[in-house]
Design a protein around this nucleic acid. Structure first.
Length: 598
RNA sequence: GCCGAUGUAGUUCAGUGGCAGAACGCUUUCUUGGUAAGAAAGAGGUCGUGGGUCCAAUUCCCACCAUCGGCUCCA
């Protein structure tokens, strides 16, 4: 039943994309059609249009046109076509022709859909549209609710997703079976916006971006940095407990290092241009690996030292293209929760399993549940990225070990060919932001490549020199991105242990100031971060302000409380908890802090 | 980088070819309160930047910069 309904909405969305194509063709007969599939919540269609032909303001006209088509009760009819027929049908549609040629080459069936009036109408003649399409579609436009769809936005999209191809104009739409579902969807987006980390970053004074400082270079404000430092401290302690050694390395390095590392060959476009000084070139580091390898090479390493886990909260800079920057999610300067584990073959799998375990522990602490593992493998057909790989067997071995570690530790995963880095396959931990957009939060990579490039060896038991294997891992990914996720996931309601201000005390009037000060002292004595805000406003106003700042506890004191030697406690999200003795409150807060209650 | 949208007070946003507007925030004064907005007064703007058209441009045109939504890329 659910399946059936799902198919129906898919067919509706797909059919709407055809109607959109009809509407565009009517307005711009010279338009060339790309593809028009369904996507989550809707559909899109790509068109090659004369430059500047369509603006977002024009979408409502197209919507109107589509509604007219829906009213005409148009039928969708599937037919199969021979290649010769397809060639004739789409002689003016080069993109369709390209697809038909490919289908023919792969000996796949060519099917077309004809959209035309179910009965002859006199008003609109020539109302007919044929598209190369595998379907499925609905039978007739009368199955579409004309009030349950909307054209939402215009975007450029490269033909077949390749930057080298021409950019087409993509029109996006959302569509549902009922008007209510559409309304709910649009409302959901509005609600999501309230938890957007950029919106909350402004509201809660977490971070800012300044045009004069530069794009993609966020400035951390006291509140934001407070939370972030808590994350850093948490991670630092956890890593220390797990045998990591922390190091600190400079944010730039000389050109030769990046020649050796392969970054200049593979990664140059993503790096800041070099700084030239005293006839030498220095690059801002885009990754910490080469610096850590320098530390590894400081002395001759023995098998007894392995695994050597070097960790750094490494501040790196990447020249991200301007169009990809977004809040704290994609920036040009950020701090990785980085580590390189230098290991021998025997310990490799165990090290990876430990990384997976540690990752899970961190995610659990922050209540992140909606994540999944992705095994990112090389695509040897991609010569540009993986072209100079000589030891394919090593890559395959690395991939196999990652896979085994995932399986042995009991995790499901998806495989993604072509997602590996230029130096090795990896496990990525994927998650979605509030808008449903996927991003990588953590990563663990196996690297057999750097040993020979950097001359990284260790002396084994038999005193022979063996190449080291490196696991690159970043559990919180970057603190910047992790913060973005944490802000959105909690909607700014940080757990007590992370909150910059954990409680405010609100005396009802000045008469209770002394008592409030006394409570303040008692809580501070227990390292609770508590404040008494300026009292010139009414109680209602001060409560509202504290709620808007998402303060976890609001403590109200009036004559009643003084008399009862207690505090009226109001907890974020839970409301008034009634009167409580100070000792009891302290106990409650300390428990919540030490248990890192979410 | 490319396609599209946006840029006006600290913030969120109205508005106009002829002296620049609101709400919140901020400052001051009054108000001393019982669980999400007490009242009044005041300060605050090169209308993103640079060119052009015009008697006159925040408004129209051009270029650039930044932000947002996509595409490609990616922690």
């Amino acid at each position: 039943m659910i399946e059936k309904s799902k198919n129906k909405i898919e067919s509706i969305r797909h059919s709407l994309s055809h109607l959109l194509a009809m509407a565009v063709l009517e307005k711009f007969p010279e338009a060339k059609l790309g593809i028009g599939p369904t996507i989550k919540n809707g559909f899109y269609y790509d068109f090659a249009l004369p430059a500047g032909a369509l603006a977002e303001a024009g979408l409502s006209d197209l919507e109107k046109k589509i509604r007219e088509f829906i009213k005409q009760d148009l039928e969708f009819k599937k037919e199969s076509a021979t290649f010769a027929e397809a060639k004739k049908l789409f002689k003016d549609q080069p993109y369709k022709l390209e697809l038909a040629k490919e289908l023919n080459k792969n000996k796949e069936k060519i099917s077309i859909y004809k959209t035309s009036p179910s009965k002859p109408i006199n008003k609109l003649t020539n109302l007919q549209f044929t598209d190369l399409c595998a379907g499925p579609h609905i039978k007739s436009t009368k199955e579409i609710n004309p009030d349950a769809f909307r054209l939402t936005k215009l975007a450029g999209a490269y033909w077949r997703g390749d930057e080298k191809n021409k950019m087409l104009t993509r029109i996006y739409g959302v569509a549902f079976e009922t008007e209510k579902e559409l309304k709910d969807y649009l409302e959901m987006l509005e609600v999501a916006e309230k938890c957007d980390h950029r919106v909350l970053g402004e509201k809660l004074d977490l971070f800012m971006v300044d045009e004069e400082v530069g794009k993609g270079l966020p400035l951390w404000l006291p509140n934001g940095y407070f939370v972030r430092r808590k994350l850093e401290n948490f991670m630092h302690e956890l890593e220390e407990k797990n045998g990591y050694k922390h190091v600190l390395t400079p944010i730039l390095a000389k050109e030769d290092l990046y020649k050796k590392s392969g970054h200049l060959a593979h990664y140059k476009d993503d790096m800041y241009a070099p700084i030239e000084i005293e006839n030498e070139k220095y690059y801002l580091k885009p990754m910490n690996c080469p610096h850590h390898h320098s530390i590894y090479k400081r002395s001759k390493r023995s098998y007894r030292e392995l695994p050597l886990r070097l960790a750094e909260f490494g501040h790196v800079h990447r020249f991200e293209r301007s169009g990809v920057l977004s809040g704290l999610l994609r920036v040009r300067g950020f701090t990785q929760n980085d580590s390189h584990i230098y290991t021998d073959e025997a310990s490799l799998e165990n090290e990876i399993i430990n990384v997976i375990k540690l990752t899970r522990e961190v995610y659990e602490t922050f209540g992140i549940k909606d994540y999944w593992f992705r095994l990112s493998l090389p695509d040897f057909k991609n010569k540009e990225k993986y072209g100079d790989i000589k030891n394919k067997e090593m890559w395959e071995q690395g991939s196999a070990i990652l896979k085994k570690a995932l399986k042995d530790s009991g995790h499901e995963f998806v495989e993604a060919v072509g997602e590996a880095t230029f130096y090795g396959p990896k496990i990525d931990v994927q998650t979605k932001n509030i808008y449903g957009k996927e991003d990588t939060l953590s990563t663990a990579q196996v690297d057999y490549y750097s040993a020979s490039r950097f001359n990284l060896y260790y002396a084994d038991k038999d005193n022979t020199e063996k190449p080291i294997i490196i696991v690159h891992r970043a559990i919180m990914g970057s603190f910047d991105r992790f913060m973005a996720f944490l802000i959105e996931k909690t909607c700014g309601n940080f757990p007590l242990w992370l909150s910059p201000i954990q409680a405010v005390i609100l005396p009802i009037s000045e008469k209770q100031n002394a008592y409030a000060e006394k409570i303040l002292g008692e809580l501070k004595e227990e390292n609770i971060r508590v404040e008494i805000p300026d009292a010139s406003e009414t109680l209602g106003k001060r409560i509202r302000e504290a709620e808007l700042k998402k303060i976890p506890y609001i403590l109200v004191v009036g004559d009643k409380e003084i008399e009862a030697k207690s505090i009226a406690v109001r907890q974020r999200g839970k409301g008034d908890l009634g009167l409580m003795k100070t000792e009891k409150l302290i106990e409650k807060l300390k428990k919540e802090i030490s248990e890192k209650t979410i």
